[in-house]
């Protein structure tokens, strides 16, 4: 027997605080609290005004039918608030003639959390995004170390090649003489 399993908006919001769903004219009917924190007046707005497609961007259109063709692709959308251009990465799904979007903010560095006024508690417990940002930070620091080392080597190399020119550019030979007077 196939058992039908349903999940309500309250639970959906716990798993995906940045989810929203919209009807066939792309009017947003419900949204998770993470998203509402960033965009309090979102519900009732049209997707077309609230978001912009970043990925895919060329081939997708702001229509129900077009979006429905992309349910097997990673979707990145951008909030269209004056001072809030956060990217959200996720997936669309058609359920009972509505489009459901679930996803999570997509940031390039850990400092962005502060910039977008996001706290770890705004994310779902299972969401690895904040940990990933820490990993990126560690990598960035390691990269800075390597770059410092590299710049030091370039400088040292230059000094060596300058010194190497010394004998050829100096008409007088260089002698090192010990205290006892013998030439070394």
């Amino acid at each position: 027997m196939v058992e039908e399993f349903r999940i309500g908006d309250n639970d959906l919001e716990k798993l995906f605080p940045f989810y929203f769903r919209m009807e066939t004219k792309l009017q947003i009917v419900k949204a998770g609290k993470g998203l509402l924190k960033l965009y309090p007046g979102l519900v009732g707005n049209n997707f077309t005004d609230a978001f912009r497609f970043i990925r895919p961007s060329f081939s997708i259109k702001n229509t129900y039918d077009s979006i429905a063709e992309y349910t097997n692709q990673v979707i990145i959308i951008q909030l269209q608030l004056k001072n809030q251009k956060l990217l959200i990465r996720g997936q669309m799904l058609i359920i009972q003639e509505q489009i459901l979007f679930v996803g999570s903010p997509w940031m390039a560095k850990v400092e962005d959390l502060e910039k977008y006024n996001l706290l770890v508690t705004d994310f779902a417990v299972h969401d690895p995004v904040t940990e990933m940002l820490q990993v990126l930070k560690v990598r960035q620091l390691a990269f800075e170390d390597v770059q410092k080392h590299h710049d030091g080597l370039v400088k040292a190399n230059k000094e060596i090649s300058d010194l190497a020119k010394f004998p050829s550019e100096n008409p007088h030979p260089i002698l090192r003489i010990s205290f006892s007077g013998t030439i070394k």
């Binding site: 097997n72 692709q73 990673v74 990126l136």
Partner: peptide, 21 residues
């Protein structure tokens, strides 16, 4: 392929990836 660079973006967050369909 359309999803491939979305994964690559995890490695290179500032990627300007190509779009395939």
């Amino acid at each position: 392929l359309p999803n491939f660079h979305s994964r690559v973006m995890l490695i290179y967050p500032n990627l300007t990836p190509p779009e395939f369909r």
